[in-house]
Design a protein around this nucleic acid. Structure first.
Lengths: 331, 331
DNA sequence: ATTCAGATTGCAACCGGTTGCAAAAATTGT
DNA sequence: ACAATTTTTGCAACCGGTTGCAATCTGAAT
């Protein structure tokens, strides 16, 4: 169907190798033959078959981009950044949606079949074991938004969620709240566990503070709303650290529809600083995760791992920052 | 690096063909050899290289998924649906982000290099010519959310945007609004043009109605907000048909921050019915596009086009439906 | 035991490229 | 003009599979 190397070679009156070399940089071709080849290629509309060449070079430039966060608007930003960055680097994202797949086996098998050069797991809710499965299969892998460990099994790029928890706690304490709630994301997620740990650590050291905690079923609007509605049925705290921004927005919705409002009746601080957080009708105080840096660094790291597949697993952390908006009372 | 056919064949004590046939269905292999092969394969951890096989079969099962809508939350839903559906059908999405790429040439070349079996263009703002470039290159293509035409150049799946415009107009008229605004999406987009046409057609037939119109720069929150702020500076209409939901939310934000509210002071009707539209703190009256059906149908159509590449270009339309929520005054 | 159709198997060529190697051509120095 | 280098070129084997074909095997029927 498509034009092949051979046809171009014939038309240009050169050998197949000559054509091949024209399209591999670093190869030795005289300007004269290169011209001939390029002319013939243009006339025929030839473009080299990347997959065929991957057979011999062992590189497909395909990167598996795996995620299970297809209901969190933050991840649209994440996908945008990843796809652009990968494209800039000449890599192609093969997108894998893990939403209803718990077992790594399937994805592993399929990504092996497509001989991806590497894999980026973009999720804060997938277990570290998931990423490890790729590592064990000798596929370079980076877990973006994954859990920090000082000696990780796989490359990890993200933030120190424990520190984020502390930061949220300090922010709430500094504003004089005395009755404070931790409204976490799904219980099993490492991000939830770590944020809670940091949060409780700081709270434990504070005097005269009452702390309560609960969890939402997912990092989603609905889950955040449901969890907050439940809070509002009992005696609620004065302010909450919510699992993430989309949950926060759900919580805010619950607050408003109960006739209350933030920050007057209840304070909310989220996490992520997704685009929506700064929308005027949301105006969420939150902790910013530097997602662009995380993405760029992940891509850089996966590329480095391609070069040296024995590279020692590395954890890259970026610092977060409180973004003051309108859902906490002022200092 | 990876285990190959040959190694499995040697270990199982059979020919390479036998191994190959074990993994291609419809091929003739005795239960006995199949057993041997499967045993050897399991021991070695073999999985066939899909790309190598694509070389002879001419099918990669790779589908280019092209979009430029990485700032519209609706498209996270769209990507979710597409990736899942494609996976269910054994196809793999190669995601292409067109955000800062206007020229089809580059994407075309790269998708040719990866010999994708077909392409899905998911966008209502890309010009029909874009999709046509693939068609001209003999790559099966479906334009999802594209413009309806009775004799389209390429397969199109979507809604009748002209009818959506009419539907919005009728809805607003039925609620007794007399001064009505069309706050369209980007002027060049076919979706904007068509929705406007239908809208104006109905308005033109109504008596005693004052109509005004303007456009936002993009289907985005910011653009919607900015456009509405501008409206509010002059004499605004009583109700607006906004380009889409995310623009509507931007517009609502502008309305609120001007001390007004919907539907009391201004009515808003959006389009899409994305997940956020039903969030309690948004509660947007809108026109639902059946995106799941559009996605499923697109995948089905691209698969059909794979089978028969001479298939005549077809347009598939799905009907929309007004979803009553709280941003228009009641009937 | 023999025949014969149908199922199974291996050989070898091919898919569209890449690459080590040795021969051929171009360049350099004298 | 000639030898020594350096560059460019084509050959042929290979990457990891598939597939048409002819040979072999199987089992049922005679």
């Amino acid at each position: 169907m498509a034009v092949t190397l051979k046809e171009v070679a014939e038309r240009a009156g050169v050998s197949r190798s000559a054509v091949s070399r024209t399209y591999t940089d670093g190869a030795s071709v005289s300007p004269k033959t290169r011209k001939k080849v390029e002319k013939a290629a243009k006339e025929l509309g030839y473009s080299p078959n990347a997959l065929a060449s991957s057979l011999t070079t062992g590189r497909t430039k395909l990167i598996g981009l795996i995620s299970n966060n297809f209901h969190n608007p933050l991840f649209l930003e994440v996908f945008d950044l990843f796809t652009r960055r990968l494209q800039e680097k000449g890599l192609r994202p093969l997108l894998v949606n893990l939403t209803d797949e718990t077992d790594p086996e399937n994805s592993l098998r399929m990504l092996k079949q497509y001989s991806v050069d590497g894999v980026i797991v973009a999720s804060s809710t997938l277990s570290p074991e998931f990423a490890k499965a790729f590592h064990d299969a000798k596929i370079p892998v980076v877990h973006s938004f994954g859990r920090f460990a000082s000696a990780p099994d796989v490359h990890v790029v993200g933030v120190d969620n424990v520190e984020c928890g502390r930061m949220a706690a300090r922010t709430l304490l500094a504003r004089g709240y005395k009755h404070i709630g931790f409204l976490g994301g799904p219980k099993g997620a490492t991000s939830t566990i770590d944020r809670r740990a940091g949060f409780m650590e700081v709270m434990g050291q504070a005097k005269g503070i009452k702390v309560k905690e609960s969890n939402a079923a997912a990092y989603s609007f609905e889950a955040g709303r449901t969890a907050m509605l439940k809070e509002l049925k009992g005696t609620h705290a004065e302010a909450y650290f919510c699992g993430d921004d989309v949950m926060s927005i759900g919580a805010l919705s619950a607050i408003n529809s109960s006739g209350l409002s933030a920050p007057t009746d209840i304070g909310i601080i989220g996490l992520n600083d997704m685009e929506m957080a700064k929308w005027e009708n949301i105006d969420l105080t939150t902790i910013r995760q530097p997602i662009k840096q995380i993405v760029d660094s992940s891509v850089e790291l996966v590329m480095a791992a391609l070069e040296d597949s024995n590279r020692h697993p590395e954890a890259r952390l970026f610092s977060c920052q409180v973004i003051e908006r309108g859902t906490l009372r002022p200092l």
